[in-house]
Design a protein around this nucleic acid. Structure first.
Lengths: 194, 194
DNA sequence: GCAGACGCTGACCGATCGGTCAGACTACGG
DNA sequence: CCGTAGTCTGACCGATCGGTCAGCGTCTGC
């Protein structure tokens, strides 16, 4: 029973392995602070091998970010419905927090290095999506204060979950943080329609 | 009437000029993304000149950050009084926002590159100070939700003022943003004592 | 007017950067 | 049993990195 794709994927997908390791190192030490040599060593391959699987350092970076950006795109699509329907604001908040938690590393990179790396297409696309998410709310927020409230909620949540040292988040149960965060963001967001 | 320091400082303090330019470039392109060559060119000097005024790239970086970190230290000292006295919470909030505004570039660097550059003493000192500011509040915040509320307020305000693209802040009058931000942070912080 | 300090520079250093390339080894289909 | 495609590697490339050093003017106090 032949199939049109390889009968068995190699047990270890080297490219995927490299993407994962690279994503972690780019988040930890920055894009320009991480060399192909370091990535190769961490993965147990040679630098040449990394460049065999990926056209360039930038290509590796983009492919490592791609899945997270794709989900961010999907998230933006699902927002439109929820923002207009008042009852689903809570669902949006939970989805937002969970998206950040699921894509910690990519979010860390976009948040902390987004401006610096704006000339990389994948990064530019991600920041564009984030901006559109903000705008989809902003459109019916007349006062500066309301807009700031939204900004503090989203940026504060993102930074706490993703970019801060353990200091603020501490060792508290991650689920406890998640729920508290959903509460606080919800408080800041829901009075916006009033 | 001789003095024990040079009678007249040179009209243009080259070291100070280099610190300012370097701070800007480190904030914009990251520490490892900024070379001494680039800094020298931007300042109109040679790379050798930069290294004449500063022992090393890291020394330049530290000296560029130093004034802001010193003020952060001062700020931490002034907090202790204000946190305990309930009436001065509003004053604290305004001071916090103004501190961020006054030291935009340094704050940008610490926020976005603090983790990556934690092995640089000045950066480590700054993150330590920030942590102590957080702890000075946390100490009498029993629930996770209250602590998250504080974290969202501080991190959100910091990120909006300092680290975001113009997207959220927009072209709105900076004073308008400042006041709205003080309002929102105040809302999040003041109910903490209840 | 001379000695020395100061500010600055180009030439140069070894190390490392991202990237190329010619092969080596393996596995598989004809 | 051979050819070919896929995977991986070391040797090598020019460019750039942070940093050193000898020496160039200029300015100043003696």
């Amino acid at each position: 029973m032949p199939s049109n794709q390889p009968i068995a994927r190699p047990q270890t997908d080297v490219a995927a392995e490299l993407r994962a390791i690279a994503l972690e190192m780019f988040a930890e030490n920055g894009y320009s602070g991480t060399s192909l040599q370091q990535i190769a060593e961490a993965a147990g391959y040679s630098k040449s091998s990394v460049l065999y699987h990926f056209r360039s350092k930038e290509a590796l970076f983009e492919e490592a970010l791609a899945p997270s950006v794709a989900e961010l795109d999907e998230f933006l699509g699902s927002i439109v419905a929820k923002v207009t329907s008042d009852g689903q604001r809570a669902q949006f908040t939970a989805d937002f927090v969970d998206l950040l938690l699921e894509h910690r590393l990519a979010a860390h990179i976009i948040i902390n290095q987004g401006q610096t790396l704006s000339d990389i297409p994948m990064v530019d696309r991600a920041t564009g999506l984030i901006q559109r998410i903000g705008e989809s709310f902003m459109s019916d927020l007349p006062t500066t204060k309301q807009r700031i409230r939204l900004g503090v909620a989203l940026a504060g949540a993102a930074y706490i979950l993703v970019a801060s040292r353990p200091s603020l988040t501490e060792i508290d149960d991650i689920d406890e943080v998640r729920e508290a965060l959903i509460d606080v963001v919800g408080e800041l967001i829901t009075p916006l329609s009033s």
